[in-house]
Design a protein around this nucleic acid. Structure first.
Lengths: 140, 140
DNA sequence: CCTTGACCTGTGAGCAACTCACAGGTTTTA
DNA sequence: TAAAACCTGTGAGTTGCTCACAGGTCAAGG
């Protein structure tokens, strides 16, 4: 498989494949004749794994160390579990924040919906934004 | 107010203030004596507005045009409402995705919790990740 | 046989929204 | 008066790609 083939197979941009290769997530063999990269099924598995781990919020360095550990025939489990648990906590925090956000946006929008479009006093929404976190203390 | 004062008042990094200034969100007066920036209460309001809008997911260019429109004595409302509604839809999509994500992470973790730490078959979690989206079709 | 187009290679830059570092000037404080 | 803390503008680093570029390679059509 060449770059474009593995990219298609995994549904990613060929440049992402090249990027992952230079980042050390993928280690394709080389065709000595033309120096082209040659990917096998193992590389495809790695690539798919990497993409799914990305969807879960793992960083590239994290994914790289997981893959490296697996390459060294170590179980990446303790490492993964650690990162995984941290990530889960983060996801839950994000969910909580987004929920608050949505609720406030919705109430702002419905307060606003009652007004005609080009209201002369057009600063209502801006005031809504300005006073945004006086009800709930959202901080980053 | 100097940079550090307004930064403290708004609870942000002074570099963020400088950054917003060069991005045209803030237009401080200048002290001709020493060329220092001088921020007033209006700047503080703008900065706070910008930060809250950022928390809501508005981009800097969006915030800039809202602020510009307000400066020109136009109601930024139609513009804001538009961006606002788009943003709300996006937030709701993010929430849905994060919910799915969390549920899958939790079930993976609990399936995993039953195993001892250094399980010889250490690839379980990796397999979980590999087969991640076969249950729910999550795609970016 | 040769040209065209699609691919390959590595490298460098651009995106967002900061954050930090640097070098030189100014003001405050001890 | 000297040191610490601030100011200035600018440039670079961050993350995870994505795109652009210049030159090399290869398969197919005329």
């Amino acid at each position: 498989m060449k770059v474009i083939d593995i990219a298609k197979a995994a549904g990613v941009n060929p440049d992402t494949v090249r990027f992952y290769t230079r980042e050390g997530l993928l280690n394709p063999a080389r065709n000595p004749a033309n120096n082209y990269q040659q990917f096998g099924n193992e590389d495809l598995r790695r690539l798919r794994f990497a993409r799914k781990a990305r969807q879960l919020g793992f960083s590239l360095p994290e994914i790289r160390s997981i893959l490296r550990q697996a390459d060294d025939h170590h179980s990446p489990c303790p490492l993964v579990r650690d990162v995984f648990e941290n990530r889960l906590a983060e996801v839950e925090r994000e969910i909580r924040e987004l929920h608050q956000l949505r609720d406030r946006m919705k109430s702002a929008l419905s307060a606003w919906q009652t007004m005609p479009d080009g209201t002369p006093d057009g600063h209502t929404i801006c005031r809504l934004i300005e006073h945004w976190d006086e009800s709930t203390g959202l901080r980053d």
